[in-house]
Design a protein around this nucleic acid. Structure first.
Length: 641
DNA sequence: AAAAAAG
């Protein structure tokens, strides 16, 4: 790990920072007059800033010296003379965290410490688990080698058999959050399957009839009982049906498709991972961001452990040569982001004729304007079996109607639509606050919020890459140990940032929407929408980074009437749908924002139900009760029309 | 108009 970071000393020079110094000051001045609305309320301020920063020193000095993903190392240790101890100011975050930072200092920061806390199913990679990726996958010299030998040999060693990793790696491969979470809650979630002849759901993993190895991996991953998306998804996939599934990440959807796919591959004995000049994977999995596909790959590697099935991950920002060598070692399950995937397919390293499963994670994103052409290119690549001859599986938490219609181009006509509760996010476990701000007050308000969060992990979402840099630098300057992730950062910086955030070394992560979807990070207590997104589904995904799996989380969003008014009505609907209090001023803004629903500037309509029921594709519909009454969950049955 | 994804 350290190896390849050291030679790259990621010095981030932020000219923005210096240039804007003066404007911060003026912004700060303006902030003094900010009076509390109901959210900020009347309670008293924190003033624990001191303990906050000293806690960092105690906690992390070694780690910090080891290289920081952001320039936080110098930022929060050295300069930053401007730590204001502003008090008299209360916010939604400071209820219970006053002295947490020191008290829990050692808790989050240690590497290789995988399982703790209480998380089920998909939430099992702790800091240690994620670290595991770097340490195992890359540390066999491969990452380093891949940096150094990029132009080197084009063929790897001729391995005909890829042995399973030695036992000592097992622990980190299977690192997961301790189970023991309250799964019972899932039994109350409504599930809705529509389409013809859905197979019967399973109630236990035993019913899935997985082989011994898979069962062992399932158990070692801390799985006890299937979640709803697994109960329904597994038999659907075993039955060979195409699937469009609405379920929040974290509800176990990755396992829901990985387990039956892996089992099927083994049943049919097709998978024998071995070196070859051309690899013919049976499974292709795509996701919209590199970090997300990497996360999915780690799941696949875990479940495939000890089997002859070899998963491989490919994405941009890393050396092509390394990627190709990894693929050629043997590749049954190819996980990738679209660009790099098409790249290696185009180079002829990967043949598609054996593809039996095509999985689209965050499917609505994969089919939106940005990705749709690439996805079409993928399914039209030479050798790719047509949709009738492969199984196509789509997963997301949101499905705008137009995307559902588009999706039918990729799915068999009789695909099944599975809606698991809490579709569309706005899970009631997340406390949602909306704060009215002006663009000039945001920065100081953010600082005040973060002062109160202690060691809690907080994701701060901004709209642009530039402002991600800007805000992260600002926070570092203010001695908040912050890192940042966005598409203009080096891939290794992105992964380091995410790693530092996962371990808690940097409890604050400033992110663009690159981090909005799918990322499963332990103990993210808070999400702050520094900038509200343009679309409501993006909001839903962002706040879904917290409050997962029965845990509680808090989301605070800065609402600037000058720019966010178009979102007001949608926001009100999401809030009330999740049984959250709607500020009266927001209702007024929403009411007066006539003309558009704000929901869909481009005609997108958020839908959590099968559009075929709405009259678009009547051909497949069985007689169904009204969508509202059958739709799953406590907050996804809004009529968004 | 922005973010993401190939280099």
């Amino acid at each position: 790990m350290e190896d390849w970071e050291d030679d790259q000393s990621p010095v981030v020079t932020n000219t923005t920072f210096d240039n804007k110094e003066s404007s911060w000051k003026s912004a700060g001045d303006g902030f003094g007059s900010q009076d509390g609305d109901n959210v900020w309320g009347s309670r008293k301020g924190s003033g624990d800033f001191k303990s906050f920063s000293s806690g960092v020193d105690e906690n992390g000095n070694k780690e910090v010296d080891g290289g920081n993903s952001w320039n936080g190392g110098d930022c929060f240790r050295g300069r930053g003379s401007r730590g204001r101890g502003r008090g008299g100011f209360r916010n939604p975050f400071n209820s219970d965290s006053q002295s947490d930072f020191v008290g829990r200092g050692g808790r989050g920061g240690r590497r290789g410490e995988g399982g703790r806390g209480t998380f089920p199913q998909e939430r099992r990679r702790g800091g240690g688990g994620y670290r595991g990726q770097d340490e195992e996958v890359f540390s066999k010299g491969s990452q380093k080698e891949h940096e150094e030998k990029e132009e080197g040999e084009t063929t790897g060693p001729k391995v005909s058999y890829v042995p399973p990793p030695p036992p000592e790696e097992e622990n980190s491969i299977f690192a997961h959050y301790e189970t023991g979470i309250n799964f019972e809650k899932y039994d109350d979630i409504l599930v809705d399957v529509s389409g013809s002849n859905p197979p019967k759901a399973i109630m236990t993993f035993e019913e899935a009839q997985l082989c011994e190895t898979l069962n062992r991996n399932v158990a070692k991953s801390g799985y006890v009982k299937p979640t709803p998306v697994q109960k329904h998804g597994i038999p659907i996939i075993f039955a060979g049906r195409d699937l469009m599934a609405c379920a929040q990440t974290g509800s176990g959807k990755t396992a829901a498709f990985l387990l039956p796919i892996l089992q099927q591959l083994m049943n049919d004995g097709v998978a024998t991972s071995k070196f070859s000049e051309v690899q013919e994977p049976e499974v292709i999995i795509v996701a919209p961001t590199r970090e997300l596909i990497s996360q999915i790959y780690l799941e696949a590697r875990k479940f495939a452990y000890g089997t002859c099935v070899r998963p491989v991950v490919v994405y941009g920002g890393t050396s092509t040569g390394f990627t190709i060598r990894e693929v050629l070692k043997g590749c049954n399950v190819l996980c990738g982001t679209p660009g790099r995937l098409l790249d290696i397919i185009g180079r002829g390293e990967v043949g598609l004729s054996k593809v039996r499963y095509l999985v689209l994670d965050e499917a609505d994103r994969m089919l939106d304007m940005g990705f749709e052409p690439t996805m079409r290119k993928l399914v039209n690549s030479p050798g790719m079996p047509p949709k009738e001859e492969r199984q196509t599986l789509m997963f997301s938490a949101t499905y705008p109607e137009d995307i559902q219609r588009l999706a039918s181009d990729f799915l068999k006509v009789d695909y099944l639509f599975l809606a698991v509760g809490v579709v569309g996010g706005a899970c009631s476990d997340i406390e949602q606050n909306i704060i009215q701000v002006t663009r000039y007050s945001k920065r100081e308000q953010l600082l005040e919020l973060l002062k109160a969060t202690g060691t809690e992990r907080t994701m701060v979402f901004v709209e642009t890459k530039r402002s991600a840099d800007f805000i992260a630098t600002f926070l570092c300057q203010e001695k908040v140990p912050t890192t940042s992730i966005h598409g203009d950062r080096e891939q290794r910086e992105r992964e380091k940032a995410l790693g530092d955030f996962r371990t808690g070394q940097c409890p604050v992560l400033v992110a663009t929407s690159v981090a909005a979807r799918g990322l499963d990070i332990e103990q993210v207590q808070n999400v702050i929408n520094f900038d509200l997104p343009k679309y409501i589904d993006e909001y839903v995904h962002r706040i879904g980074r917290t409050g997962r799996c029965g845990n509680t989380g808090r989301a605070v969003s800065f609402f600037d009437p000058e720019s966010d008014t178009p979102l007001a009505r949608a926001l009100v609907k999401v809030l009330s749908g999740a049984k959250q209090e709607v500020p009266s001023w927001l209702e007024e803004v929403a009411y007066s924002a006539h003309g558009t629903t704000g929901f869909s500037p481009h005609g997108k309509v958020f839908a959590s139900t099968d559009t075929r029921r709405g009259g678009f594709f009547q051909k497949n519909s069985e007689p169904q009760p009204a969508a509202q009454s059958t739709s799953a969950g406590d907050d996804d049955d809004e009529d968004w029309e």
